[in-house]
């Protein structure tokens, strides 16, 4: 549905997005994953036309969009990272305003509002001031506002940052429903565990795309095994010792609570890297995979 070709954007000397190319296929949930400052937000803002790319092309349904993404914005709903509705207005007033300025007719607005408030469980809070909502409810309100205009494409910038775990689960249930309705989702997140909810991931590092793959294929082809290792000595000490041995070794190991997660190739023994009290093999998570590719990039 959406295709980016060598899109770049610099702010002064900083290359926020550096020749990024990837696809957002119709009807799938694509997750844009990367650390803070990797360029996720800038990319999304370019897609809706809030930021003009310095170079590159953005194609919507195979047709180039002129001057950035104004045309994308006409079919997309964009939910910025920070809550961007009016705190002094009630839930309903926010929804009404959003519908009005997006040209949603009154009849359709009422119908959509009823459905969205019901679906998000916000019906009892209709009259509550947006400023008095919890973090999770704010996000649900923002999502509802975005959905009023029935966009085909949803661009979500860190939609669950600062949201409690229960609301997160609800939020992803809604996303799943939206996908089932045939909508396309592009979601940026720094939480790799959440990326698992998607169909595809695009890993970003310092404005560059370091990997673009379906999650199923990523799992299938992941070239390393992951072990949870309880080191014999203090965990920080153990980590430092490994890192001192060189970059290559250090890249394969990272801290995870009281444990170290160690990635090794087929047939290699993790205990050879760290003297261990216990070693357990685990299923690689997306976070492991991100770190694996990020450190190689």
């Amino acid at each position: 549905m959406l295709k980016l070709e060598r899109v770049s954007k610099s702010y002064g000397a900083l290359r926020a997005v550096d020749g990024a190319s990837f696809d957002v296929p119709e009807g799938e949930v694509t997750v844009l994953a990367g650390a803070d400052g990797a360029g996720k937000s800038t990319l999304l803002r370019m897609l809706v036309g809030l930021v003009r790319p310095d170079e590159g092309r953005i194609l919507l349904d195979g047709r180039e969009t002129e001057g950035g993404g104004a045309r994308v914005a006409s079919v997309a709903g964009y939910m910025p990272e920070r809550f961007s509705l009016y705190l002094d207005l009630s839930v309903e007033e926010n929804l009404n305003f959003f519908a009005d300025v997006h040209g949603v007719g009154r009849k359709r607005r009422e119908e959509m509002k009823r459905r969205l408030l019901e679906r998000t469980g916000m019906e009892p809070f209709r009259r509550r001031r947006a400023g008095a909502l919890s973090g999770g409810m704010k996000q649900k309100l923002a999502l509802s506002a975005m959905l009023l205009a029935s966009p085909r494409l949803l661009l979500l910038d860190e939609p669950t940052t600062g949201v409690d775990p229960l609301s997160r689960i609800e939020f992803y249930d809604i996303i799943r429903e939206l996908k089932a309705e045939g909508r396309t989702v592009l979601m940026a997140t720094p939480y790799l565990a959440e990326a698992e909810k998607g169909d595809r991931v695009v890993f970003l590092k310092q404005g560059r795309v370091i990997l673009e793959e379906t999650i199923a294929r990523l799992r299938k082809n992941f070239p390393a095994r992951v072990f949870r290792v309880l080191p014999r000595e203090n965990v920080f000490e153990a980590l430092r010792r490994v890192e001192e041995r060189g970059k290559e070794e250090g890249r394969r190991i990272h801290l995870h609570g009281r444990y170290l997660r160690v990635m090794v190739g087929e047939g290699e023994d993790p205990a050879r890297l760290v003297p261990a009290l216990s070693v357990e093999e685990e299923k690689p998570t997306l976070e492991d995979m991100y770190l694996f590719y990020e450190r190689r990039a």
Binding site: Y78, P80, S84, L85, Y86, F98, H102
Partner: peptide
């Protein structure tokens, strides 16, 4: 400050 400028710019206004 409220981050709503983008909301306005992305509307049909």
């Amino acid at each position: 400050e409220q981050q709503t400028m983008d909301t306005l710019l992305l509307s049909r206004l």
